[in-house]
Design a protein around this nucleic acid. Structure first.
Lengths: 204, 204
DNA sequence: GTCTATAGACGGATAGAC
DNA sequence: GTCTATCCGTCTATAGAC
């Protein structure tokens, strides 16, 4: 199921180029919309050569998704129960927005997958992700009960953070078109806006 | 480019069945992922018969997208410059969340399209939608300047409303899996959460 | 209006030479 | 490891009988 173990320099370079090319194509077209021709072209390889490194289109896609998960969950993992509540949540928002800015393709790959029913990620979402959210929701609930933040539904607070930050990656085209040519980089204003939003929501 | 004009009852029934079936399939699989076989099957027609009513797969998709636009923009159009600011914005949030609850397929059709670069909607987004947002942003800005709501970036406020409400349709699978079987309908809690969020953000 | 049959193009994957 | 050639399945769309 997995790619050729990259022992040599050439193998490392080629599997890397394939994954990078595939990320761009899958993010822009979805799994079924992407073709091996496009990926091979973008990676600078022939189609059969690409299939020398990965056994199938599905295998490339799965490799990308699984490789993505840690990047995606780390910011939430870093939420520190011992920290100052509002500052911790604002830092989480900031880290998540940075992911949208620096890894928009990864965000869109993930969005494509969930949007189409998460056929390959349902297990991880119902397992690993759910457990992590549960744990951090408990932290947020304790903060609220201690009066250190205003009362809030913990899970829906987390959904809000995901929705608001990922929107700037997943709907980037719409954001830019609606703002127009005047404001080329929407992220600074987005960061200020989200900081104000969550501060007013949470600060007791 | 368009479908057979539905003069007879049979034609009206069949074009309706096709559009309904196509909405489900396009929403779940995206444009390229969807096949005419799936749509025909879901509509209870043969594939050639389907192509008697619409000239091409593309034409069905375009019909759905254009038909969707009014439904999608009406809640924002209804934002009343003469109303009470916080109540008006909360009502907009509520209407938008109702769309996510009652028309999740439409939301996912739209999300698929924007996510993949809005190839067919870029014109409308940069034109009609941008103008509408511009106009309503001006209203919000005046409210803020008059001290009737707290100062806020109008466009990013609107993006926030889109992101938060559409998340419950577009990422519905993830929301349900993370919440688990305990809470079968996430919408009541979502509505309460969003009402609190925007009230605290905006109430002066 | 609806069907069977099929054309014609494309996409994933493999064979086999080098 | 990389290539050319190609197999085979699937997909959109059309032809043509009824």
């Amino acid at each position: 199921m997995n790619e050729v173990r990259p022992r040599t320099r050439i193998q490392r370079r080629n599997t890397g180029a394939i994954l990078e090319a595939a990320l761009a194509v899958f993010a822009a077209q979805g799994f079924r919309g992407a073709t091996l021709d496009q990926i091979a072209e973008a990676a600078g390889l022939s189609k059969p050569n690409l299939l020398y490194y990965f056994p199938s289109k599905e295998a490339i896609h799965l490799d990308l998704l699984t490789g993505l998960l840690d990047l995606w969950l780390d910011p939430l993992r870093a939420l520190d129960p011992e920290g100052e509540p509002v500052a911790e949540i604002l830092a989480y928002v900031r880290r998540k927005l940075e992911l949208s800015r620096d890894f928009p393709l990864e965000s869109r790959l993930f969005a494509n997958e969930v949007l189409q029913g998460a056929p390959r990620l349902a297990g991880v979402i119902a397992g690993e992700l759910r457990d992590l959210v549960e744990a951090k929701a408990a932290v947020i609930r304790r903060w609220a009960e201690a009066g250190r933040i205003r009362p809030v539904h913990p899970q829906h607070l987390i959904f809000s953070i995901w929705a608001l930050t990922q929107h700037y990656a997943d709907f980037e085209v719409q954001v830019r078109l609606v703002l127009g040519a005047g404001e080329p980089d929407p992220f600074p204003a987005a960061e200020a806006h989200l900081e104000a939003l969550f501060t007013r929501l949470l600060a007791p």
